[in-house]
């Protein structure tokens, strides 16, 4: 199973995972943690420093060593 970097932390994902599956697994973890949850409409995804548009989450396969950043909007000055 491939290792990727997600927001700076190593994570092992199932083989042949897509960005869609990664986001879905984070949604599941957020639900399990019982917090505010994860609003995927408020996310932007970057793989290896290139933005992955929402419309291509399913088509974009993740591979060993991919560096993924998933960001959202927070308060700031």
């Amino acid at each position: 199973m491939p290792n990727i970097s997600l927001n700076g932390e190593v994570r092992t994902i199932p083989a042949n995972s897509s960005v869609e599956q990664l986001v879905a697994s984070l949604e599941a973890e957020a639900k399990e943690a019982g917090t505010r949850g994860l609003d995927r409409r408020a996310l932007a995804v970057e793989v290896n420093r290139v933005i992955v548009p929402r419309s291509t989450y399913r088509a974009h396969a993740l591979t060993e060593g991919d560096e993924i950043e998933i960001v959202t909007i927070v308060g700031g000055g």
Binding site: E27, A30, R36, G37, D39, I70, I73, G75
Partner: peptide, 18 residues
């Protein structure tokens, strides 16, 4: 109004400023 962009914390969650 200005906002910032940060790595999502899916486990503890964020206050959704938007």
């Amino acid at each position: 109004v200005t906002v910032a962009i940060r790595r999502v914390d899916w486990k503890s969650g964020h206050d959704p400023v938007m």
